[in-house]
Simulated assay, not measured.
Amino acid sequence: MKIIGITGRSGCGKSSATNFLARQGYPCIDADRIARDVLLPGSPCLEKLQAYFGQDILEADGTLKRRLLADRAFATPEGTRVLTEITQPEILRRIEERLRQAQASGAGMAFVDGAVIVGTPFESRCDALVLITAPYETSVQRICARDGISPEMARRRLDAQTSLDTLRAAATIEIVNDGTAEQLENKVEAYLESLGKEEHG
């Protein structure tokens, strides 16, 4: 089974690309959603995060105060690194589990959508890596609209993410999402066709 990673920075539209692929019937694994799931009550990651970022990052009922954790974790490179070191192994374990299920169901190709594939152990598992990009300010507007945060916060979040140069160096192909949703779908479809040709060629 071919494993194809779909990555990009926040607000680039990779979820739109993945939703389109899912509608075409391909198994799509949302690594970012898994990353959120590993922070749900009862997850083994929470205790470790508390030990480093403070006991007060959890509500009394065990729910994570996500914004507080994000503010602390992304305030320094060290904090970002610790957050990754604590959550990454559990995220990777869950992705592998989903991939096994996809393979067991007979899928020839599975897509893993994640902002943080490049530079992680999972990168080497991908047979190809699709990078979705969008103009910087377009991404800022999308993040503000989606998360209800200020442009300044959105820029800070973008600037804390892996640089485009690093992503481009790792990517097999770049799809620029600077138009309508339909235009993005057409570009993804063209990529699927090229993959089909490779398989049959």
Rank of each mutant, 00 (worst) to 15 (best):
I4R: 05
R9H: 02
G11C: 12
C12R: 07
F20N: 05
A22H: 05
A22Q: 10
R23Q: 15
Q24K: 15
P27V: 14
C28P: 00
D32F: 15
D32G: 10
R33C: 02
I34Y: 11
S43P: 04
P44C: 10
P44I: 06
L46A: 10
K48G: 00
L49K: 12
Q50T: 09
Q50G: 15
Y52N: 01
G54R: 04
Q55R: 14
D61F: 11
G62I: 11
L68I: 10
A70G: 05
A73C: 13
A73W: 04
P77F: 14
E78N: 12
T80K: 14
L83F: 10
I86M: 07
E96C: 10
L99C: 09
Q101C: 15
Q101H: 15
A102N: 07
A102I: 04
Q103G: 13
A104R: 08
S105P: 03
D113P: 03
V116L: 15
F122Q: 04
F122A: 04
S124Q: 14
R125G: 02
D127G: 15
V130R: 03
L131S: 00
E137K: 12
T138K: 07
V140M: 03
V140T: 00
Q141M: 07
Q141Y: 00
I143D: 02
C144W: 02
A145N: 06
R146G: 02
G148E: 10
S150Q: 01
S150M: 05
P151Q: 06
M153D: 09
R157L: 09
Q161K: 01
S163E: 00
L164H: 00
T166N: 02
T166H: 04
R168C: 12
A171V: 02
I175N: 05
N177V: 00
D178M: 09
D178T: 02
T180K: 13
E185W: 13
A190D: 10
A190T: 07
E193M: 09
H200G: 08
H200I: 07
